[in-house]
Design a protein around this nucleic acid. Structure first.
Lengths: 178, 178
DNA sequence: AGCAGTTTGACAGTACACTGTCACTAACGA
DNA sequence: TCGTTAGTGACAGTGTACTGTCAAACTGCT
């Protein structure tokens, strides 16, 4: 590991990051165009997908974990989608206030329609790139994502320690933040 | 190209897309943590970077083109950053209402500080991945982004045609949308 | 010069995602 | 059993990005 290696890695990763930002924006826009006339957006479509994968056995928080978003973000989407009749809350024997979320018939229809549109779109998009690289690219991206996830968790723990300063066992500060 | 190829490409690209969404969220969050105490955010930091690259010869719209965002988004950031004293508008001989944007001394200091923090952070992040793949991954991502860009441009043109129906030469509808 | 078309800044409205907080529920250990 | 800890929904506030729209400024063509 020479100095040059570190510097070139730094440059390469910075450019990769900017590329990810750019692609993300385009993907969201493309998704919105693809399913917009179905009463969906990229984000809501993703929520439906997560719920389908969990087969009706997921709460909003569960879906958030699968999607890698905060539970608040997914809650907001889920509440809106319940209001629109895309999702139906079902009694959860394990938690009174955290209903299991299932697709309504309307939600299933919308998701199926979205899948029908996405299929040819995805194939067209894949034509533009060397197919063999798709999987390795995904792997690299997920590796970076989990590195950042660890980092974020470490930072959170750091801030926690800074705030509490006592392991909550002998906490004497409970309202000292006011 | 067999059927199986198309289907596997479809699956691979779908998973890649979800991975990009995930990484994007983590990157934005990491960037915010990295430069938050400098009075910056990921987005504002990027604007400063774009302006540095253009060396003070860019308007907000120019920066937007470089960054791959809409000009409205960048305008909003630029206006806010002018208010915060990070950026200074300068007379533009080529356009009265479109000032050239330059970093103020405060903006330069913030950008330099951000760069100092980013450097070790980027190297650490790069350690977790095979360095040789960074560049090829970036290339693939940019390829996808430009495919989507073309698609978006085509869709816009489509909608334009649908709305106008006359090549603006004999337009008779100018207020017919009300 | 005059007019059509384009570019630009500004404003409005919508949608997402994050942090921070609070109250309530569930699970676990003393 | 009781109290601590973790999980969950809901609400508030902030920041970002998109589309749509308008008026002013610029460009090019006639």
């Amino acid at each position: 590991m020479t100095k040059a290696d570190g510097a070139s890695a730094e440059l390469a990763i910075t450019q990769l990051i900017l590329a990810v930002f750019k692609l993300n924006g385009r993907l969201v826009a493309a998704g919105d165009r693809l399913v917009g006339t179905l009463g969906l957006t990229s984000a809501r479509w993703q929520v439906l997908g997560a719920l389908v994968l969990q087969d009706g056995k997921a709460t909003a928080s569960d879906a958030a974990r699968v999607m890698g978003l905060t539970r608040q973000s997914v809650q907001r989407l889920a509440t809106a989608m319940i209001g629109e009749g895309l999702i139906e809350p079902t009694a959860n024997p394990r938690h009174v206030r955290a209903p299991l979320l299932k697709l309504s018939s309307k939600g299933k229809a919308a998701y199926a329609a979205a899948a029908r549109r996405q299929s040819p779109w995805a194939r067209t998009l894949a034509e533009g790139v060397p197919i063999g690289q798709l999987a390795s690219t995904e792997a690299l991206i997920l590796t970076l994502a989990s590195c950042l996830e660890e980092q974020a968790a470490a930072d959170r723990a750091q801030r926690q320690r800074g705030r509490a300063l006592t392991p909550t066992g002998t906490r004497r500060a409970k309202k000292a933040r006011a």
